[in-house]
Design a protein around this nucleic acid. Structure first.
Length: 261
DNA sequence: ATGGTCGGAACCCGA
């Protein structure tokens, strides 16, 4: 038995629907967490996707944000927000749980705020968002289930996760303060699936559209699947499918895939 | 090099 989870910031699901279908044909994941749908649930392109063997759990929003979980397993429970979220009107969170051969599984799909200018209002809200999210996750950790958080965290955790740590240390997504939030989250008892399977690999999941960043591989690893330690003995591999970033009209993010067996 | 390029919406905003 295999269990395959994907997280992908699509930067508009309507624009990326053909790429998503192609990706599903190649990888056939059990769970697909999508971020930045940029559409409401009623305009989610189900016409093109509903023939696929998934249950669709969508928390949409017009123009901005929007998250979804495509799951081969029907959900026993669905949540579209977490306690004390400082941005409750922004569709950045959806969570489901179900059972499979691993036991009880809980999947959190998160689109963390970007943060804007370091030190600005949006930056402070990002830190507050993390504080409340960490508090929420700490309440889930004690559950006797496997927890998978699939996210565009908008934080690159360590020096190895950015192309130039010295140049970026004062920039949003790589400040000391943001990295500290990421460590606090991981220290609750979660493992970064990519980093534990590839300890020395300098690979990225996001590259700016501007200034030929992808061509020069000037990116950041800000998208991850992190899971509770009880799932790690089943983890076979975790990789970033950067080929998706080479396609015509790509998302600025590449999908991250984790395989459990 | 403080620019550059996308997507969705309305001709700007967020990333």
């Amino acid at each position: 038995m295999k269990f395959k989870i994907v997280t992908w910031n699509v930067n508009s699901i309507k624009t990326r629907v053909d790429q998503l279908i192609g990706f599903i044909k190649v990888h056939n994941p059990d769970i697909i967490c999508l971020q930045e749908l940029k559409c409401e649930e009623k305009s989610f392109p189900l016409d093109f996707l509903s023939h696929l063997p998934y249950n669709f759990y969508i928390h949409g929003q017009k123009t901005y944000n929007g998250v979804a979980i495509l799951s081969k397993f029907p959900a026993d429970e669905i949540k579209v927000d977490f306690l004390n979220n400082p941005l409750p009107d922004q569709a950045r969170f959806i969570e489901i749980c179900f059972s499979n051969f691993l036991g009880l599984c809980r999947i959190v799909c998160l689109y963390a705020p970007n943060g804007g200018e370091v030190g600005g209002d949006k930056f402070r809200t990002k830190l507050e968002f993390y504080d409340q999210f960490i508090s929420y996750v700490s309440s889930l950790i004690s559950y006797d289930e496997k927890l998978f958080i699939c996210s565009d965290f908008n934080i690159a955790p360590f020096d190895i996760d950015v192309h130039n740590p010295e140049m970026l240390k004062a920039d949003t997504c790589f400040t000391y303060t943001e990295k500290a939030k990421m460590r606090t989250l991981l220290n609750l008892g979660l493992v970064d699936n990519f980093r534990i399977t590839h300890q020395a690999k300098k690979e990225f999941s996001w590259w700016d559209y501007r200034a030929g960043a992808f061509e020069q591989n000037k990116g950041m690893r800000i998208d991850s699947i992190i899971s509770t330690t009880n799932s790690i003995r089943f983890l076979e591999d975790c990789f970033i499918d950067y080929k998706m970033r080479t396609l015509e009209k790509p998302s600025d993010h590449a999908p991250v895939v984790a395989i459990y067996a």
